[in-house]
Design a binder for these strands. Structure first.
Lengths: 223, 223
DNA sequence: TCCAGTCCTATACAAACGTCTAGCAACTTA
DNA sequence: TAAGTTGCTAGACGTTTGTATAGGACTGGA
């Protein structure tokens, strides 16, 4: 297939479903992993079944066990895979921050998987959350520079909250899409969300004096 | 038990676990409901089992079925119960907005249940999300009044995002608590989060011009 | 006293699940 | 050619799950 390559160089060899390489051309082992990522992200770890994943991958349930051992081992393999993928995406973004919109689109399936895994309580995704918090913290540092007053709580705390909040959106994709009137993973929903987040992040949602007076009630433990 | 009543009048007859009435004094039917709320909120619908809920309630699995029919019916009963509770809390807050800190604490178990149900895809909690969005929308209206520029997206869209983000925090309570170094449902974590949210909501996180330039890339569909 | 209804337990059942074993076919290596 | 390794399927096993049924204990009214 020599069609014009639409994959940005940053994501070379990263995603599968969205790239030019066909799903059927993958090895069975890779197909199982892709199918597992899909099922885990969409249905969660518990609802997803070995047999359904195997069926999506076009193999038997026995082969899945042959390659990955157990369901828990399969999840760990997916976690490590996504972990490495996100690192590569991140490194690529640092080197070439131009193609943000496209990479956003490409890394989306990984994002939903991470979000779902975090909510499901996967034992190995904790470091990913911590890393996202650290990235947010560095991002918040810039905002704190152009700020006159002193924040009432540590930057780390705010980074944790912003990170968790951001992940909440794909976690509630069903209700977000319904309320938006369009699929939030589609191009229209994606645009709405991106613009909405930019607007929210660039404006204060409550008055400063209202916030400080409300914060006063929390400064000392309530009786 | 004639100890000083700590329950604010707003929540009269609302929560159970945190009130003076003992869990053992409830009818079996109520104990089952309370146990189900606890298990569904903590473990999610799939991981929670009929038998475990019955054991927590101190009854047999058969009695659970006798009172509630099926697991799905039990979930619906919990949904409707929480739905009504939140309405009463909301009505009470409108009538007497003074005891916000305490009511926050009291309505927290319901909040985590709603959050988990929304993420689990419960069929009957959709309206709750829509209602929360509407409340957020009214709340955003005040912020829009004291604003000079025109928002780039509809207020409804921003309300949806803010609502989903807020719910994301209890959904990721495990990682939030770990990153915070303290249980986010404890008094210390609760204070940190309340203050953190106030700080975040009362300040812009990115510069306005940066946002507008970034938004420009989304105004027209990318090629 | 009898009877009907309610509350409750114990046990059984069918389905679905993760896991395991046996075995076949193709390819590689000695 | 023989033996070993790898990729793969089919089927069975034991457990757990939601659900169903039979029956006991208690209560209130006729």
């Amino acid at each position: 297939m020599s069609a014009r390559r639409t994959t940005p160089p940053v994501l070379e060899g990263l995603s599968i479903r969205e790239r030019s390489v066909a799903f059927e051309d993958l090895t069975a082992r890779a197909r199982i992993r892709e199918a597992a990522l899909e099922h885990f992200a969409r249905e969660g770890y518990d609802r997803a079944t070995i047999r359904a994943i195997a069926k999506t991958a076009g193999v038997s349930a026995g082969l899945l066990r042959h390659h990955y051992g157990s369901k828990e081992d399969l999840r760990e393999a997916c976690d490590h895979y996504v972990f490495e993928m996100l690192h590569r995406v991140n490194a690529g973004l640092l080197a070439d921050p131009g193609t943000t919109a496209q990479t956003r689109q490409m890394s989306k399936p990984f994002g939903t998987y991470v979000a779902r895994s975090l909510a499901d309580g996967s034992p190995t995704v904790g470091p990913i959350f911590d890393e996202l918090v650290t990235m947010t913290e560095a991002w918040l540092a810039r905002a704190d520079d152009s700020r006159t007053d002193t924040p009432i709580v540590d930057r780390r705390v705010r980074a944790v909250l912003v990170t968790a909040m951001k992940i909440g959106i794909p976690l509630l994709h069903e209700h977000v899409s319904r309320s938006l009137g369009t699929d939030m993973f589609g191009p229209e929903g994606d645009r709405l969300i991106a613009l909405g987040l930019l607007d929210i992040y660039s404006h204060a949602l409550i008055d400063d004096d209202v916030a400080t007076s409300a914060a006063a009630g929390y400064e000392e433990p309530q009786r």
